[in-house]
Amino acid sequence: MEEFVPHFKFEKLKIWQKAMDFGEDVFDASKKFPKEELYNLTSQVRRAADSIALNIAEGSISQSYPEYKKFLGYSIRSLAEVVTCLYKALRRKYIDQEQFNELYAEAFHLMNMMHAFKSKLM
């Protein structure tokens, strides 16, 4: 079997890799949400978490830095949406304080990485 070799430039970006991991962590946490939340908070937090990496990838295809920055802005907004959903999940007792703290710390680290990356673009 051949070794997989990434060909897209976004696959090499640490922020994309971290966003991919964060999306999976949020997905796993949302599995514990009650069934009545499936089409509400569960769906919302999953879509927002996935949107972070999706927008990083989509922006990387752009030929201009302003366009790339726009997509990074979308990623940052999606991350803020996830954090708000996590607060909702904590208040509704779908996740405990420890899980919230872990996901919040990941989100904060990712936010800092995205802001730093965005500021380095021309």
Rank of each mutant, 00 (worst) to 15 (best):
A57I: 09
L79H: 01
S43N: 12
S60Y: 13
I56E: 00
A53D: 05
V45Y: 02
T84C: 13
Q99C: 09
F71N: 08
F10G: 00
Q44C: 08
I95H: 04
N112S: 06
N101P: 01
F71K: 15
M122D: 13
Q63C: 04
D28V: 15
G23T: 02
S60F: 11
A107N: 01
Q99N: 14
S51L: 02
L13R: 03
E37C: 05
F108N: 12
Y65F: 13
E3K: 14
C85P: 04
K32W: 08
L41I: 09
F117G: 06
T84L: 09
N101M: 09
Q17C: 05
M114V: 06
H7A: 10
Q63N: 11
S78R: 03
S62G: 07
V82M: 02
S119W: 04
K93W: 00
F71W: 02
H7Q: 15
A19Y: 07
C85V: 06
K14R: 08
F117M: 00
N55Q: 05
R46A: 03
G23E: 06
R47P: 10
T42V: 03
K88T: 08
F22V: 01
R92F: 10
K120Y: 08
S51Q: 00
L41C: 08
S62D: 08
E58G: 05
G23M: 04
D28Y: 12
E2V: 11
K88Q: 14
S51I: 05
M114Y: 02
S43D: 15
Q17F: 00
F4L: 11
S30Y: 03
I61M: 13
K88S: 12
K69Y: 01
K9F: 06
F33V: 02
A105I: 13
K14W: 06
Y104H: 13
H7G: 07
A49T: 07
S43K: 07
T42W: 02
K31Y: 06
F117R: 00
